[in-house]
Design a protein around this nucleic acid. Sequence first.
DNA 1: TCAAAAGTGTTCGTGCTACACCCATGC
DNA 2: GCATGGGTGTAGCACGAACACTTTTGA
Lengths: 224, 224
Amino acid sequence: MANIKKKYKFAVIATDVVIFTVRDGQLQVLLIKMQKHPYEHYWAAPGGLVKPDESVDEAAKRHLHLKTGVKNVYLEQLYTFGKVSRDPFGRVVSVAYYALIPSAGLQLKTTGEYGEVSWFPVNRLPKLAYDHQEIINRAIQRLKDRLGYSNVVYSLMPRDFTLSDLQNIYEIILNKKLDKRNFRKKIFSLDLVKSIGRKRVGEANRPAELFVFTSRQLQRFKIL
Amino acid sequence: MANIKKKYKFAVIATDVVIFTVRDGQLQVLLIKMQKHPYEHYWAAPGGLVKPDESVDEAAKRHLHLKTGVKNVYLEQLYTFGKVSRDPFGRVVSVAYYALIPSAGLQLKTTGEYGEVSWFPVNRLPKLAYDHQEIINRAIQRLKDRLGYSNVVYSLMPRDFTLSDLQNIYEIILNKKLDKRNFRKKIFSLDLVKSIGRKRVGEANRPAELFVFTSRQLQRFKIL
DNA sequence: TCAAAAGTGTTCGTGCTACACCCATGC
DNA sequence: GCATGGGTGTAGCACGAACACTTTTGA
């Protein structure tokens, strides 16, 4: 460890990306199984060094794409973790990001050189390498905050959805029940969604009206 | 420039600290005059490389102390700036922080090897080196947000102060007038301050009651 | 006809906004 | 006694919280 540290005259930069989706009624995070000592059998958020010719944002996008195949999803810088001994392989400072992707039609890059990749519900996480537990905790907190003060939720939803779908996402992430009537009132008063004039049919109950977001750009305002 | 870049195999880490105070009825930032081409006659926020044996937080504290002599002031990580060409001297990623210090009894380290150091009102900034204009803009925005949702303002105030002093700080930073009665009601209802049973005397008007903060720990809640 | 989720209004209380006059002091 | 900032209360309004029943479909 000590001799590895000496490879670098200064701290070097890496990035880690906490990738969220909502699947099976739970908020889930994408993790990769580590191979190297001392972290074999630990899991970690995808990430790696920033190359000299790419920005930190680009590095985060690259790692996100590498593991999920997705592009153009919501990606926000979270925080930079810079403790001296956070990485036993050397002096690495990590700029953490978090990404939000809709679960519909997701295909992981589980094969290849990078070992096992898997989704985990945030309340049943395995042993995590480095300070990734701390990183994920902070990402969850940030996500909760953003839900209440922006329309980011659009990045977790498919193109069209019912208001109950939307309310479910909120309830799952915030981990509390919301009042249906108040929720709908609020969403409508903010003009967040518009009806597409169709209903979701084929279920054993009254068909629900389908909506799309009026805007899929990030906007800030108080929702909850 | 190109050959300097090659000195580093990876991006290296620096930190920059935007230091705020309120003086002369204005929000001001501490800047240092640059010496080296291409930025001679430009100014910049204090900062520099992170040493291999210090955390990024510690590096920020070090640079803050170096220029102001102060310790134990409010210091918060702001954002990490990672564009490839932000620094013409090489591939440097900067973790920006901002600090808040009370103006009372401030003494700058204007002498010594580091060249000129000076305060500038945020709305009359000189030409800034690197991407420091962007960093400062973001810091101002963050500060405004925090004022409305926490008690950070304590870190800009002397130990005891009048309610008008406090309101002034808010008005200066937010750049808008507040209603005196509503402001006082809010501050009291949150138990932010307590009277010390003394008044500020010697001014050509009714003496104002002096207060201290009930807590000088960061707390979050909606103020404005 | 039953189960299951969709959809729909009103009431109440809290908190924010707007607003004007008297008070205590130094000069 | 005058100029200067200190200190105080109320009324209207907007918004959030609580709450229950009818509708539409598939099985």
